[in-house]
Design a protein around this nucleic acid. Sequence first.
DNA 1: AAAATCTCCTGTCAGC
DNA 2: TGCTGACAGGAGATTT
Length: 294
Amino acid sequence: MPELPEVEVVRAGIERWVSGRTVAAVEVLHPRAVRRHLAGPDDFAARLAGQRLGVARRRGKYLWLPVEPAAGGVPERAVLAHLGMSGQLLVQPQGSPDEKHLRVRVRFADAAATELRFVDQRTFGGLSLHETVADDPDGLPDVIAHIARDPVDPAFDDDAFHAALRRRRTTIKRALLDQSLISGVGNIYADEALWRTRLHYDRPTATLTGPRTAELLTHIREVLNEALAAGGTSFDSLYVNVNGESGYFDRSLDAYGREDEPCRRCGTPIRRRPWMNRSSYFCPRCQRPPRATA
DNA sequence: AAAATCTCCTGTCAGC
DNA sequence: TGCTGACAGGAGATTT
């Protein structure tokens, strides 16, 4: 459920409360939470101890903390975090009761009486330590080099995105969820952006014109920025910022989760369709299905 | 080789 | 009351 706006809210909280601090000790309470760290939980904890963490960065739904190099220069390692479906990064007072699904605890070597906690009910998310892409000033972890830039990144290439859509033999919502084409968009904001653009989720990407792709990108950016301003979207208490608070963008959703409720443009009841082991919400009048799909 | 499908995981809720 | 199954769904792994 955390998509770009939710992860960005968390990133900002981590930057404020964690960046610049030095790790004292790491406690892994569930090995699955560090499974992407192939050398194992003990190695993860040992390599992190004593390291000073730099400014928190984000690409799409991934966020990371560069490990500050001892001798200056660009970072060579970074702590990568992905929230998966239900992951939370919380900054909590030391000694406050452990959360039920606490997976990793990071203590710091300073006087601030807070610690970083990774809490994850479904353990789809996790933490890991990686080498960075050579000479990357932000310390991009090598394992996410294949993740495309996200649409709020100034370096996102709109024309290249359109060319990629034309080249692909797939449908638009699949493409929006493909993080190697555009990152940060998940099921909720894909449905919202498609509704705003009046595009059906099964529209073949090869049929999109330049102006139509441009419109879609505009709406994607708008919905992401509006959600960010609202502190993110939350349907339950699973998505929270580092202080445990939920955003309120769910009140502003036009399509997602609104089955049988009237379309805010035309009044037609919003429909839900099973789609790729999840759901697609759309207005059957504003978002007409493509003519020639099988 | 690109595209589609499978799979991991735990909790909630509807229905009986 | 308690069981069952559907659903939530990101993204790497596997299959087509």
